[in-house]
Structure formats: structure tokens, C-alpha cells
Design a protein around this nucleic acid. Structure first.
Length: 495
RNA sequence: GGGCCGUUAACUCAGGGGUAGAGUAUCUGCCUUUUAAGCAGAGAGUCGCUGGUUCGAUCCCAGCACGGCCUACCA
């Protein structure tokens, strides 16, 4: 570490030495506050400037602002609940203690004991009678007006961001409330929360490239899961009729404002139900969640309005293409016409792609981003839905939907494929695609097929991207705003 | 992966071919109800890194690193 004699950190290290020399412990344990700042405010907020409160209360927190007025000083102490002003006066503390208090720095964590009172301007404050330095801070905090806005520092040093930016703390709280709400919502309906493997020998359940790792003792390759789906369905086979998991998935793909290599998914499965039931459940779950979190079913995302009031429109993939005008009703059934249209649109397609794949390629390219929603798009082609049940009337499509809100896929659900013979065929098709170079194609999971051969009850399941849901409800434009420690390249030159 | 933009003090930002500026923060002094406290003074930067052009580069050029946005892949 480089040390110029006058660096801000060295100034504080010198103070630290002086504190120790004068017998003050700079990292003290054992102080227990009575109240958080918000509790102090609600308990004593009603006092008047004339009141002489004799109660002594203890608060703890970080010094965020210091105003020394000579023989008296004010400081702002921040804790998790907010902040409270404290008043330090020489004639209360005595000369020696007051001079020690003046050595406290912005950033230090302190415990303060004193009596609540109101200042001339009517602000509830704490007149300190004694204090203790709990943690000496050695680095200066970001500037008090503009705070910390450099996104790189905000993400890399999230602790700093949380310290100085209230909005960042609010996102954390909202995220926790959202997950808690979803957990209770499902638990209340008889769902059992489970945990399934993150490290898998055969990564399954989604079309995605997995991360690879290696188990030394077993001398074999393992994958980080791309989805929990196949394990949750094994639990349906085992007899649990409603299960869910809220946990991390890992996909070895690009990073963007919508994508982090690890992200959180809610997956839930319900036996004896269909994807229609999933749509109703999703409407109820997310619209009530919105009321809980933002206070209304309609709210702003960016500069546009979103309204989650049920029911939400339901259209098929083909209808969405027709509605958009990109294809007409003759073309949409004609594989070659669709292929030509894809080429015209510059959509990346392969000459061997099936009708279903081509339709989805065009959908992804031109329709998806325009689906402000909320809208359920259903009847996905069977070729791109290897785990979903075929539609009884049209075996070329599946009983699958994706929920779109604000041009983004929020959820993916389907009536599950329970036929082990069909499932084997679908897997084999995926294996052929993998052998042809598709690194995202599914692996064949022989044990999963064996489970289906024992018999899985008819069921529907859904995956819901938690990060994107949190983005929607906190009006965040980047997934990194809703993940505490988003993935970053290693920092160079760190001391 | 591709394109564009950015990187100057601890933070927020100006500046610009002749070796650097502001506010906040820090330090010193004054100040017993401030709250963007005030007043006076001071210190603080290898201008992201490495090369090139130039008498001279923080500035111009190239490469690299990191970040942002768009794009691609995906959820």
C-alpha cells in the first residue's frame, strides 16, 4: 500500500494511534442501543421545546454529518431505520470528554446515551451525556451533497452505496419483501418449499449454456444448474403435489442490463392443474404483490404506465405475429414463406430450421420487445418447448405460455409433459441439436426419464424471474440495481 | 463478441500541447441550538495503464484495462 504522508487515510490512522494512547478503545464491543432512530422519533416526537425529558436512551449508528459550533456540536447519526441528530455540549460533557467527541470523524460508528429534546427549529435530537466510539472509520465517506453516483463504485463497493444512498437500501428491502410475499403466497396455498441441487451432473430444465466445474474427489465434471425444473418434477413423482423453490440459477451467457450470470428464479409446480391455472395464479399473485409493494396495481415503469389489474390478455404466438403485421394468416402456416420473411427481416435463422423455430425467431426479433403487457403469449411450438405437453388439438404446439411485461419475459410456464415416451423423443431431438453444435440444447437425463416412467401426475409448472420482477416493482432499469453484488470484472490496482 | 462514449483530488465535476482547478471532505484557528451551519487560512492529484508523435503530452494518435449505453445471445 502506498502512503503519502498527508493522505486522508493516514490522518485517520494517526488519530487512531492518538486514541489508543489516550486509553480509548477504537473497536469497542458490548454497547447495546435501546432504540433505533425511528423508534426514538415515534416515542419522543411529541415533546415540545420546553419539555425537560429525564429519560436516558441509547442509540448506535454511523456519524454522517458533523457541525462543530465551538463549545457545542451537532452530529447526524444514521442507523438502519433512518437517522437522528445528536447534540454535544461542553457544559454537559465536561471539557475533556467534549474534546474527545470533537475528534470523532464522519464515518465512525458510535454509541450515544442522552436525553431527547427539541431544538429551536423543532427537530427531535438527543442531548448526549456520554458516548463510546464503537468503530473507528479509516476512510472518508463520499461527498454529502451529490453522494456516490459512480455506478462502478456503487456496485463494487456496495457497502458504500448502501451507506450513503437511501434508494439503494430501499431496493434491498423491497426485494426481500417481494420474495417474502411470494413465499407466503405459495405456502398459504399448500406449496412446499424445497431445495434441489445447484451442482448437477446433467444440467437440465432450460435452454442455456451451463457453467462447468470439477469435483476433485469424485474426479468428474459438474455443472452449475441452469434451472431446478427436472428435480422439482422428480418431487411430483415422489408424491408432493405442490412444490416450489426460490434460488439461484447460473447461465454462462452474456451480461447486460437484463442478465446477470447468476440470477434468482422462483419455480413452482402444481399437480392436477394446467397452464390455464398457472395464468390465473400468476395474475392473482403478481397483482396482489404490486399492491403490497407499490401500493397499486397500476404504476410507472420508466416513463410508461403498467397496469397489472387482472385479467390479462392471452394471445397465441401466431396471433401475436399476425397482430404485429409481420406475417399474414397464409404465411404463418407456410414454413418456406416464414423462412423467406425471416431472411428479409435479417433474423438469424438456419436453412434447416423448422416452422416453429422460425416463428419463434421472428417473434423474438420483432414482437417480444413491443409487448408492453402484461400479456400471456401461449401455444409455443413444440420444437422450442422440449419439456412441455403438446396441445390436444394441435400437436405442433404446446400448452405453454410466457408472460410479458414491459417488453420483457417475466415468466415461463406450461402444462408439464408427463409422457415418458414423448419426453425421450424430445430429449433425443435435443441431443441431435447438441451434436449439430447447439450448445444450449438440453442434455438427455436418463434418471429423469426413469422417474417419468414410474409416473408423474398431470401438473403445471412455472418459472418466474425474481430479479426482473424486482426491477419492475422498484422501477430499476438495470438488473444490477436489484442484485446486491452483481458480477463485475476483477478490479485492477486494488490496494 | 461488435459499435459508440467515458476514466482528472477521498467524492461530485470543470479544464485543456507549456507539468492542474472548483465545491464538498480533510487539517489549523474562531464560534454553545446547527442542520448544504458560518468566517479565516492550509494541505491534498504519476490527469486509468503502456507505447507513439512532439523541444515538450494530462491534452493529439494507437493498444490495453475497467465502466456505461446500444447491439448480439439468453431469462
Amino acid at each position: 500500500m502506498k502512503r503519502s504522508p498527508s493522505s486522508l487515510k493516514d490522518v485517520r490512522l494517526k488519530k487512531l494511534e492518538e486514541l489508543v494512547e489516550s486509553g480509548i478503545q477504537p473497536y469497542t464491543t458490548g454497547f447495546r442501543p435501546d432504540l433505533r432512530s425511528s423508534e426514538l422519533k415515534s416515542k419522543y416526537g411529541g415533546i415540545s421545546e420546553e419539555d425537560n425529558v429525564s429519560d436516558i436512551v441509547r442509540i448506535a449508528g454511523r456519524i454522517m454529518a458533523v457541525r462543530v459550533l465551538g463549545k457545542a456540536s451537532f452530529m447526524r447519526i444514521q442507523d438502519v431505520a433512518g437517522d437522528i441528530q445528536i447534540y454535544l455540549a461542553r457544559d454537559i460533557l465536561g471539557v475533556e470528554t467534549y474534546n474527545q467527541a470533537k475528534k470523532l470523524d464522519i464515518g465512525d460508528i458510535v454509541g450515544m446515551s442522552g436525553s431527547p429534546f427539541k431544538t429551536r427549529t423543532g427537530e427531535l435530537s438527543l442531548a448526549v451525556q456520554s458516548f463510546v466510539l464503537l468503530t473507528k472509520s479509516l476512510r472518508p465517506l463520499p461527498e454529502k451533497w451529490h453522494g456516490l453516483s459512480d455506478v462502478e463504485i456503487r456496485y463494487r463497493q456496495r457497502y458504500l452505496d448502501l451507506m450513503v444512498n437511501r434508494s439503494s437500501r430501499e431496493v434491498v428491502v423491497a426485494r426481500t419483501q417481494i420474495i417474502s410475499y411470494l413465499r407466503n403466497f405459495l405456502t398459504d396455498r399448500g406449496f412446499l418449499e424445497v431445495e434441489t441441487p445447484m451442482m448437477q451432473t446433467i444440467p437440465g430444465g432450460a435452454t442455456a449454456r451451463p457453467f462447468e466445474t470439477f469435483h476433485n474427489a469424485l474426479n468428474r465434471q459438474l455443472y452449475l444448474r441452469v434451472a431446478p425444473e427436472l428435480y422439482l418434477k422428480r418431487l411430483l413423482v415422489g408424491g408432493f403435489d405442490r412444490v416450489f423453490e426460490i434460488n439461484r440459477n447460473f447461465r454462462n451467457e452474456g451480461i447486460s442490463t437484463q442478465h446477470n450470470p447468476e440470477f434468482t428464479m422462483l419455480e413452482f409446480y402444481q399437480a392436477y392443474s394446467t397452464y390455464d391455472d398457472m395464468m390465473s395464479l400468476t395474475e392473482e399473485m403478481l397483482s396482489s404483490l404490486a399492491i403490497k409493494i407499490v401500493g397499486s396495481q397500476s404504476f410507472k415503469y420508466g416513463d410508461r404506465d403498467v397496469d397489472l389489474t387482472p385479467p390479462w390478455p392471452r394471445i397465441t404466438v401466431k396471433e401475436s405475429l399476425l397482430n404485429h403485421g409481420v406475417l399474414n394468416s397464409n404465411e404463418v402456416e407456410d414454413r418456406n414463406a416464414v423462412f423467406i420473411k425471416a431472411l428479409e427481416l435479417g433474423v438469424p435463422v438456419d436453412k434447416d430450421d423448422s416452422l416453429g423455430k422460425l416463428l419463434m425467431a421472428i417473434f423474438d426479433e420483432v414482437v417480444e420487445g413491443n409487448l408492453w403487457g402484461p400479456v400471456f403469449v401461449h401455444h409455443y411450438p413444440v420444437e422450442v418447448s422440449p419439456l412441455a405437453r403438446r396441445n390436444d388439438d394441435d400437436p405442433a404446439v404446446t400448452d405453454r405460455f410466457e408472460l410479458y411485461v414491459c417488453g420483457r419475459e417475466m415468466a415461463n410456464a406450461f402444462t408439464e409433459l408427463t409422457d415418458p415416451v414423448d419426453q425421450r423423443n424430445r430429449f433425443e431431438e435435443q441431443v441431435r441439436a447438441r451434436q449439430a453444435g447447439d450448445e444450449e440444447a438440453h442434455f438427455l437425463d436418463e434418471d429423469f426419464l426413469r422417474a417419468l416412467e414410474y409416473g408423474m401426475p398431470p401438473a403445471a409448472g412455472e418459472g418466474l424471474g425474481i430479479d426482473r420482477l424486482v426491477m419492475l416493482l422498484t422501477n430499476a432499469q438495470s438488473i444490477r440495481e436489484v442484485i446486491l453484488f452483481p458480477h463485475m470484472r476483477p478490479e485492477k490496482g486494488l490496494e
